[in-house]
Design a protein around this nucleic acid. Sequence first.
DNA 1: CCGGATCCGGTTAGATACTG
DNA 2: CAGTATCTAACCGGATCCGG
Lengths: 229, 229
Amino acid sequence: MGTRVQGQFCPIVMAAEILSPRWSIVILSEMMQGSTRFNELRRGIPRLSPALLSKRLKELEDWGILDRRITGSGETPEYFLTEAAEELRPIIDAMANWTHKWIDSRMDPDHLDAQLLMWHVRRNLNPDPAPKRRTVVQFIYPELPQKERNYWMIVEPGRDVDLCSLEPGHNVDLFINADLLSMTRAFMGQSSLEREIDRDRIVLTGDIGTERNFRKWFVQSSFAQKPGA
Amino acid sequence: MGTRVQGQFCPIVMAAEILSPRWSIVILSEMMQGSTRFNELRRGIPRLSPALLSKRLKELEDWGILDRRITGSGETPEYFLTEAAEELRPIIDAMANWTHKWIDSRMDPDHLDAQLLMWHVRRNLNPDPAPKRRTVVQFIYPELPQKERNYWMIVEPGRDVDLCSLEPGHNVDLFINADLLSMTRAFMGQSSLEREIDRDRIVLTGDIGTERNFRKWFVQSSFAQKPGA
DNA sequence: CCGGATCCGGTTAGATACTG
DNA sequence: CAGTATCTAACCGGATCCGG
């Protein structure tokens, strides 16, 4: 029968007990976007340790919110949302929209995180039209100390976009010099890539075809355009 | 400008950061039901320590989710929901309905809590028609050890219903002998007071007029009747 | 009484390393 | 790939105390 509620009569207190532990709703959100494997979730949620992920998955399974299955023989486990979890989807979506409307503007311009931003930009990058051959884009944040300044995205036809913070050793097709706050606001939707380029806060240099492509590939955070924005 | 988000780009992660700390959404829920004063919230949320309440109120104020105001001169502070908080109301309501639908049934019959149940029953009691004079109802859970067995509710016209677990020294008008699980299910909506009385799991003895009244006063948890039940 | 602040022991979470 | 193990830091719960 799974985990049971101990003497609670207020549904909000119970809901909090289930959904409040750190990362629980983030894990559910990630699964609602399609992840089913342990390491897929790890990749999808930076800063979540495997120990805690393991613990949370067990808890959520015990609550009947997700289902751990081993599909084939010799297969590794997969996690699926139950009907109860599906009915949380509109709630979690609403929370995301609420945050975008009321909290996004409170981003602290003094504590931005280039690496995490790049991670999200890569995740949202939609390389369409696909390049004919491997294409390398280098992001440069001149204001940052050497170690956090450079990021490379490698776009190869038929493969996931790769991100690294060490020189990958390929020719760079496009350089993007950017102000970190501007790139952040362009991604989050308080601004846009085009506007920041017009204002010279983001400067694209290099192959003109790649530049044209990249402007199409760059996709804002999926919550940037939602109603209430 | 209040608290600021540090380098987060996923709105769900941000929402979790704001709403996940223990009691945060319970406090908001309580305020959505009308509480505005510190001790009103304390009374409304058993098991929440004043220290943590104070901390959470400050955090929520910093996020711009509630507003601390001192209305008159020499007045004590009052807390009010901001517009951002109001837009959380449908989300919190939806969470409560979700819990009722998917989690209520997981109540552990071996770890019920009579005192907390009585606290909620009192809170939901609607003494209408009001009695002419002070009326005392004694709840008895024969299965429980002596110390947790008896509760008294004192209904006086024009006053809040009072609850105590020590003999209040008044004549008792109505005795309610009940099975704890049955009373719990009657309150939570998996059953009803009438049904449990019919099945003799809840037995009312004493003044017949008070009995008739009590059957009307007893109100189920406000979430018991919601859609999705 | 109201609105907190302080202290302390137990629980939870994060970082890192390691394993079948 | 899918987790454990271990250690430390942060957070929480409960009791107590304080000033108006």
